[in-house]
Design a protein around this nucleic acid. Structure first.
Lengths: 221, 221
DNA sequence: CATATCCTCCAAAGTTCTGTGGAATATCGT
DNA sequence: ACGATATTCCACAGAACTTTGGAGGATATG
């Protein structure tokens, strides 16, 4: 009664999701998509992949049901299939951080020296409502436009050095970026500190903020 | 400044966990281990794998940090590295169920016709405290011995037909087994119904019960 | 010390995955 | 209809993974 092969088949189907998560490049694409929809060429550039390579990885993710695609004119936008995918990605990252010995050093090597102060989401809310700090979004403009923390000011990291005068000098700055694996806010805090500003960093980033159920704003300012 | 290769390296490290989840056989082993520690030969038999095959898959899981091994005399026991792994496995299953089109049919083909009534954890607690139902653990004895729902009676599925007289005929029975992907409780409820007993099934199973933070009992009775 | 048990290591063969170019396809603006 | 742009399809070589059988290591027992 083929009951065994039915079981094998079921687990093999479940493994399709696992297989999709089994490539660094695909995880990188997933991490980017967790910020909002993107086109293929855009993703390929951001992940430093050949166009055809990126396309095939994206199709692999799509076959596994993790992302969806929509055509807009000549371009095709890929997007996360849902927040459950983002949660899965976060859970995987947490497990890796805790269980894989080489992840912690790799993270530190990527994010740079641990010399920046960080505060959690509750503390950010406290300081903002108290009016003692302003929130700075240092992600690229399109991602800010897609969604951001309410009240945050957008100055992408690569424009920050030239736009320092837009930030009041007497206020503390809380910088954030994509998520725990994003360097932008680390670099931003270092840059601001070099210019004599008081700056701290939000632990993790926008993705975790959104998944925690905090309010977000999609208005452009 | 090699910053790019550092990033690639980091994501490649994270992908090690994904790779480990990318095989049906390994997921099957993981699902078994979520019930409690097991020896290699035991696991190989339960998953219908060659001994060397099982061993190599287990080592792959271990390299990814998902499981640990301990020697007991001549045998080696593998165990889940922590509850975070079980949570990850559950999250993956949920995503697959929701996003991969072929998973639902495969699940139904495996679990059998959807003709058994199910109740959730809160309802089980309600009926048990009210004394209107008894809880029946139909998993194999060793798994019951490792941990079970407090107050549950153990009658493994393959002994159930011969031990029906141990169950009071005037009480409703709530059967449970390993988890959402376990057939035992489905089969048990059908068997009990055929013998004129009132029987329902706990949605999902022991793994989900434990991860939800409900009390468990490790005492043998 | 010999033997049995349980498991891991190793090598071989088959299968699947990855990255890369070039060709083909779909859509837009003119 | 035509050229330009964006993306997918195809084919191929190299790398990685899976499975299997046999040899070998560690541990307990007589």
């Amino acid at each position: 009664m083929g009951g065994e092969s039915v079981k094998t088949e079921l687990f093999e189907q479940l493994a399709r999701v696992g297989k999709a998560l089994g490539s660094g490049k695909r995880l990188e694409l997933l991490d980017l998509l967790a910020q909002g929809p993107r086109s293929v060429a855009d993703l390929a550039a951001a992940a430093r992949l050949g166009l055809t390579t990126a396309s095939s990885h994206l199709q692999a993710l799509k076959r596994a049901g993790l992302i969806t695609s929509t055509r807009h004119g000549t371009t095709i936008e890929y997007a996360l299939a849902g927040d459950d995918i983002a949660t899965l990605w976060l859970q995987l990252r947490e497990v890796a951080e805790r269980r894989v010995a080489d992840v912690r050093p790799a993270t530190e090597a990527y994010l740079g020296p641990d010399d920046t102060e960080e505060i959690d989401r509750a503390e950010l809310l406290r300081r903002v409502t108290a009016g003692t700090a302003i929130v700075l979004d240092v992600r690229p403009q399109p991602e800010y436009a897609a969604a951001h923390i309410p009240g945050a000011v957008s100055i992408p990291l690569d424009e920050l050095a030239g736009r320092l005068d837009e930030i009041p000098a007497d206020q503390e700055i809380v910088a954030y970026c994509r998520g725990a694996l994003c360097v932008f806010s680390h670099d931003a805090v270092r840059l601001l500190a070099e210019h004599g500003r008081r700056a701290v960093r939000l632990t993790d980033g926008f993705l975790e903020w959104r998944l925690a159920g905090h309010p977000i704003d999609t208005a452009v300012r």
